[in-house]
Simulated assay, not measured.
Amino acid sequence: MIRQIVLLLLVSVMLSACSEQSDRFSTYTEGQQQIGNINNLLSTQLDNGGKTYWPFSEAYLQARHLAYQGLANVELSDSQQAQLNYLIIAQRYPERFFVWPVQRDVISNAIKQDDYTPEALGKWIERVETKLIEAEQSNLRLNKLELKLLRSMVISHLDNNNENVVMALTKLNQYLAQYKPRTKLGLVGLANGKDWYQSKLNYFANTTKPPLSWLSEIQHLLKEKPTVDLSLPVFSSHNKPLVLQYLEDGDLHAGLDWQLDFIDVKQSKRQLNQDEQYFWSVMMETDLGIHYHTWNVQQARVNLMKRLSVNQQQADWLIEDIVLYPAMSFIFAR
Rank of each mutant, 00 (worst) to 15 (best):
A72D: 09
I218C: 04
S216H: 11
Q4Y: 13
H238D: 12
K223Q: 15
L215I: 03
S108V: 09
C18V: 13
G36T: 11
L10D: 07
K266L: 15
N109Q: 13
I89K: 14
E75G: 09
L142V: 06
Q45Y: 07
F332S: 00
L244V: 05
N39S: 13
D321F: 06
I107A: 01
S237T: 15
T227R: 15
A59K: 13
L247T: 02
K148C: 00
N164V: 12
W258R: 06
V228Q: 03
R96G: 00
F97W: 08
L42Y: 04
E75I: 12
H293F: 12
N40G: 08
E30M: 07
I88A: 07
L46R: 14
D23P: 03
L232D: 06
C18H: 13
M305K: 13
L149I: 03
G189P: 10
Y325V: 05
Y292T: 11
A67Y: 03
I88C: 00
L42Q: 08
S156L: 01
A110P: 07
L8F: 09
E58H: 11
L252M: 12
S329F: 02
F332H: 03
I5Y: 13
F330N: 07
I218E: 03
P118F: 05
I133T: 12
A17K: 13
Q45I: 04
Q32Y: 10
L256R: 02
G31D: 02
D261L: 04
Y68L: 06
P210G: 00
Q81D: 04
D275N: 15
Q298D: 09
Y278P: 01
E129Q: 14
A327W: 01
H253G: 03
L221H: 13
M305N: 05
T183Q: 12
R151K: 13
L222I: 11
C18W: 14
Y86E: 09
P181D: 02
D105P: 03
R182C: 04
Q81L: 14
R104K: 12
L10E: 11
M153D: 11
K131E: 15
S57Q: 02
V106D: 05
R92G: 02
A110N: 07
A72Q: 12
Y68I: 05
A67D: 00
W280H: 04
G36Y: 01
E217K: 09
I155Q: 12
Y179D: 05
I89E: 14
P55Q: 08
S77N: 08
W295Q: 04
S268Q: 04
T208C: 06
Q312W: 00
T227Y: 15
D229T: 11
N73E: 15
V106F: 02
Q32M: 10
Q313V: 02
S57V: 05
L41F: 09
N192R: 12
R92E: 11
S309D: 14
N303I: 00
